[in-house]
Structures are given as structure tokens and as C-alpha cells.
Nucleic acid binder design. Sequence first.
DNA 1: CTGTTAGCGCCTTCAG
DNA 2: CTGAAGGCGCTAACAG
Lengths: 330, 330
Amino acid sequence: MAIGIKDVAMAAGVSIATVSHVLNSTRYVSDETRRKVEKAMKDLSYSPNYLAKSLKENKSNVIGLVVPDISNFFFTEIAGAIETRLREQGYNLILCNTDENLELEKQHIAHLQSYMVSGIIIAPTTREYNYRSLFKTYDYPAVFIDRRLNTPQGDSVYVDTKSVSKKAVEHLISKGHRNIAFIGALKSLSTTEDRYAGYAEALYEHGIAVRPELTGFGGAKDDSGFEICRNILENNPDVTAIFVSTSMMSIGAMRYLVDNRIAVPDKMAIIGFDDYMWTGITNPPLSTIKQPTVELGVKSADLLLKRIEDRSSDIVNEVLQAELIIRESC
Amino acid sequence: MAIGIKDVAMAAGVSIATVSHVLNSTRYVSDETRRKVEKAMKDLSYSPNYLAKSLKENKSNVIGLVVPDISNFFFTEIAGAIETRLREQGYNLILCNTDENLELEKQHIAHLQSYMVSGIIIAPTTREYNYRSLFKTYDYPAVFIDRRLNTPQGDSVYVDTKSVSKKAVEHLISKGHRNIAFIGALKSLSTTEDRYAGYAEALYEHGIAVRPELTGFGGAKDDSGFEICRNILENNPDVTAIFVSTSMMSIGAMRYLVDNRIAVPDKMAIIGFDDYMWTGITNPPLSTIKQPTVELGVKSADLLLKRIEDRSSDIVNEVLQAELIIRESC
DNA sequence: CTGTTAGCGCCTTCAG
DNA sequence: CTGAAGGCGCTAACAG
């Protein structure tokens, strides 16, 4: 069927060993035989079977990426950056979506290993789980991104969103706001926790009490952001500013304000999360916190590749900085 | 190292053939032996090596997706839909980005086949190339999406964007606009061609001449949309409406209008392409054409899966309909 | 009802 | 400088 190394060997009149060696330049081959082999490869338009190679070598040139929500721009940007970086290094990317579902996540991780992927990058759905226990070997290459785990389980790349969230809320306070709402994703996520902590700390340091009724948590979707925003604003007419700690929820909250003709920033100030192309053309242009998604992707890919090379080096934990971008919504 | 089928066989005191057969329920095994085998698998926490299986069976449970620009929301939505659909069917997805580069695309297609992916879904960078010539076998499962080829090369799923573009322009005309600009991606793409054809046809049928100076083409990025918009508007003060035939270019064009405080829709009407969460919160809410991305993804996955099952059935060509969504920008 | 065995395509040690 | 041969983990005849 498919033409393989042995067809090439036959056509070139050499052994398969020789063909293998010219293929990988793994031992000296005389110029003449090399040429013969190369000609044969060309003539037969041979291309190696990576599966067989991987099986033999017990590792593939593929890595797995496991994310909780592929429809979230934050993760797609990261995925794009990782894909690009890996391609440069001759690797491919298998993309897995978990829908924030631990069972699915476990399945994917097992599955990926069955394909002998060389390593896995995970944005974990939960902070409690012992992901290491899912790995075939104790030193399986894996890097964790975006969400912290209760106990570190390997290399990781996170973004410091606490301090920047604090800065955002301080900005609102400096504009005279005192009744500031907080909208966030599931409370169990480290990311939500951090951003909320930044919010609370800013309030605390300015002598403002945190009012639980001004805070709302839920799924990180736009509809959820819309609902939470509605709920808070309808019940608390004194709110004059909102801090939303998730990109899609920011859109939902904004939509609530637009739909209800609540003037921004005059009646309501808002700072959202994650910065994209369209944040400049919203009504009004939205102030946001910009996370370094590309850098996060590239760093995590590099870390994983390094870990694949050397499983015994010290674990590294990168923390990237985010940036507050002030536009006209606050 | 890794525990395999033979370790299980040994532990269960049966042959590897039996283990393989309980694994795949591919022949009858007595309840008792089955139980022994299953126990052994559990005890050893065995999990099969898909690579070996794929090598043997000459096909994997992985499919490849090749897209020209993974940072384009249009393609990420499609990718998400495909991933979800494939997972339901027990397949995984390898994601490849070509950056609109034919050489890279060829490389990816070759590479994917080296990994014995069961099939490939491609949004091709060019309409001229004979992609079939890159396939190992003449009947290799592949489905083409989004962009048409000069000559059909397999199953395909496209969106009819011509008629909806015409409708969009007719809408602008019905509002009294006569000097309508067209902003599109590279002219060589079938998608650009179709949308431009819809634009031209609408003008023609209303006795309006196409003025080349009101049309602009370029890379499908936001900056490119911005520049083309600027160029057209600066040189043609009589333009009162714009039709943008690409999502990111729509954002760029909008940003030009916002930056230059050109009142929409009073001074300038605009209809953009592709509908996302944020199109409802722009200033003003943007009228757009919504392509059925999820349906496109699901359909293409289904088609490919069907093609993998049966390579000889008739080629199918799906054409999906898009929808014009009128908001306040026109 | 179960076991033996020959590969899938490739790499790599061991001999020339 | 080059070949022969074993085996990676699994499937599927073929043979009981």
C-alpha cells in the first residue's frame, strides 16, 4: 500500500538500515549511496511514517493542549500562540476541550497519553485534583497554565491578575466611586479568587466595606455576565461602577447596560477583563485588563519543550504581568 | 516500561489474542476469562497504546484541521464545533495553521498523513492548487470548507455569501444610499469574489454603477480594514455607506469611524461581516451578516466521518445559508 | 472457546 | 562504510 522505507531500500539497492540512517543522518553514509537513496526517495515520493517512528521511540512529535472552553477567546489566543511556537519546533498540537468537566478532562489526558504525545499543556478545570496521578510516569512532561492548583504539580505559567485587579478598582475609587460591584466566574477558580482578592484589598485599603450583595459569581459566559449584572443593579440602585473579571462576562454586562440605556460612564463606570480588537469600538470604548495571552502561550510551549528534553531539571513557575488599559468607560 | 497487552495477558493467564479481543469485543470470550482479563487490566491500570493500534490498522482516530488563520474568530468557532463533534465520535483533532501560506499548507498536509490521521478538513489558502495530488491515495478522506476550489476535489461545505451580501447592499440602497463602498479580503479568494459579486449585482440591478475607487481589497486583518476604509473615505467624501465583507476588517473599519468621530449611521452607514457576542455592544450596535459557523463545523465533521466509513459514495457538496442581522449601524 | 504467529513501518544494536 | 535481525504494542488470520 503505502510505500515505506523498505521500498526505498529496494529501489536504491541498499539495506533499510542505510535508508533509515540517511533519513535521520544518524551515522555516516558515503556520498554515493546517500545520493542513490535520496533519488529513490524522490522517485517514490517517499515520506516517513511518524506513527511507526513514535511507536519505536516511545514518543511522538505531538503535544496535547487541554482547555476548559475553546469558545473563550482567551484560550483560543493562547492555543494559537502555542500552535505557532510548536510548529516552529517541528511539533503538532492536539486540541482538547473539557467544557469545565473534570471527567472529560481525565479522559482527554488518558487519551492523549495513549497517543504518546510528548507532553501536555493544561488549563485545569479544578484546583484540587491530583493530575499527576493520571500520568503514566511520575515525571511525565506537563505544564499548567492560567489557573493555579492547590499544590504545584509541575512547571506552570500564570498571570498575576490580583495586583492588576486591585489597580483597576483603585482607579474606580480614585474617580470617586464607592459602591463598586464585582462580577466574576466560579468562585472555586484561582483566577476568580485572585481577582476578587484584588477587588477586596483595594476597597479595604480605602476604608470601604465589601458588600456581598454587590458581588456576583457564575459561569464565565456572556449570558451569565448579563444576568449577574442585572441582578446586582436592579437590587442596588446605589451602584455606580462595575468591575468584571472575565472577558465574556464583560460583554454580557456591557450588553445589559446598553440594552437598558444606562449611560456609560456617566451613570455607570465599567472596567472589563481581557483586551481584544473590538474593545476599542464598544460604546463607549471599554477599559479593560489585558492579559499577555501570546506570551503565555509561547512561554508554556517553551517550558514544555524544555521539560521534554530534560525531565529532571528544577520546576519553573512563571508569573506574567497584566496591564490596565483605561479607555472611556470609566 | 509502559505496561501493555502482554502484561495483562500474563497477569490474567491468557493469551494476548484473548486480551485484544476482550478489549475490542471482536470475538466471543467466556464470561470467566473476560472477568479475569478485566480484573488484570484494572489491577495493572492498563490502557491501550493507540499508536500501535493505528499503525496496525493503518488509520488513527485523529483527524486534521487545516485553517489559514487561527486568530480569526470565524475559524476558531468552526474549530470548536468540529472538536466537539469529533469528540462525541471518539476522534481527536490536530490543529494546523497555515498563515495563508501554501508552502506551509502543503507541509501540514504531508505531515498529517505521516501521522496517519484518518482524514483532513481544509479551508484552503488558494483555489488553484490540486490538493488531491498531496494525498497518499486518490481517495483519501478530505473535506473542503469555506473557500471554493476552481475544480471540486472532494466533499465540501460552503456558505452562500453572495446572495446575503447582495441582500445587505440592497438594504443599504433601500435606505437611500447610492455611493456605497466595498471592503474585502484578497480578491483571489472565492469568498471575496462571491461577496463582491453580491455587492456588484445589487448595484447593477438598481442602476448604480460600480466605482472601482470605492472598492478596496487586502489582508483580512483589522488593521487592513482600517487602512482601506481610511483610503476610500479620504478620497471619496461622497461615500455614505460601507459594506465590509470580513469580520476583522469590519472591526478595523469601525475603528476608523470611531477614531475619526464619523457619526454612525447618520454620516455613515455600515454593515459588517460575521456576528459575534460583541456586535451588540459596539457604537452603535453593528449590523452584520451571520455565518452558520457551528453548523459548518458540525457538517464538515460529519461529512468527513462518513467519508472515512465509505470512500466510494458520491461526493457531497453542502451549501449553507447566512443571515443578515440589521441593527443600528445602517 | 482460546492460543500461535506474522506482520504494521521504523530504529538500532551487533556484526561484518 | 553497510547489512541482518529483533522488537516497539497491537490486530487478525489460521489453527486448534
